[in-house]
Simulated assay, not measured.
Amino acid sequence: MTIKHIVMWNLRGESPQEKAHAIEFLRSRFEGLRGQLPGMLQLEVGVDSSRVGYACDVVLYSVFDSQESLASYATHPAHLRVRDELGDLRISRHQVDYAVSEAA
């Protein structure tokens, strides 16, 4: 059974340029985690293109081989470093984790 981990954020930015810079900073930091985390099977960062008022700015979609791997990710030094680098850049955060059977 794999675990999908989806996180969505809205980011700080007084202007469209500041917001774009914040988005790129977040994207580059999370994409830098590829290959560093045991049990992480997939990582994708998406940027909203709809621009509707209720949309989040960025989504992180990742897949782990087990609930234990996802739990280890939460405390892994590389992940904690990214979280610290982002600081207060994120103004809201939403998360969903769910299990998917191999047959799905």
Results as ranks from 00 to 15, higher is better:
17 Q>I: 12
63 V>Y: 04
86 L>I: 14
15 S>I: 10
102 E>V: 00
42 Q>L: 09
66 S>G: 05
75 T>D: 13
85 E>K: 02
88 D>A: 06
69 S>D: 07
85 E>Q: 15
64 F>K: 00
84 D>T: 11
95 Q>K: 04
75 T>K: 14
95 Q>H: 12
86 L>P: 13
9 W>P: 07
4 K>H: 14
86 L>R: 11
49 S>L: 07
104 A>S: 01
33 L>P: 08
14 E>S: 13
59 V>M: 10
84 D>P: 03
29 R>F: 06
9 W>Y: 12
3 I>D: 09
13 G>T: 07
68 E>H: 12
29 R>C: 09
58 V>Y: 06
25 F>H: 14
53 G>D: 09
41 L>P: 03
76 H>E: 04
28 S>P: 05
6 I>T: 09
62 S>N: 05
80 L>M: 15
102 E>H: 04
1 M>A: 15
25 F>Y: 08
68 E>R: 15
18 E>H: 13
100 V>Y: 00
5 H>C: 06
92 S>H: 00
40 M>P: 08
54 Y>V: 10
15 S>E: 09
23 I>K: 12
37 L>E: 09
49 S>H: 09
62 S>G: 02
5 H>L: 03
83 R>E: 11
95 Q>F: 06
49 S>P: 05
90 R>L: 06
92 S>E: 08
74 A>K: 07
39 G>H: 01
76 H>Y: 08
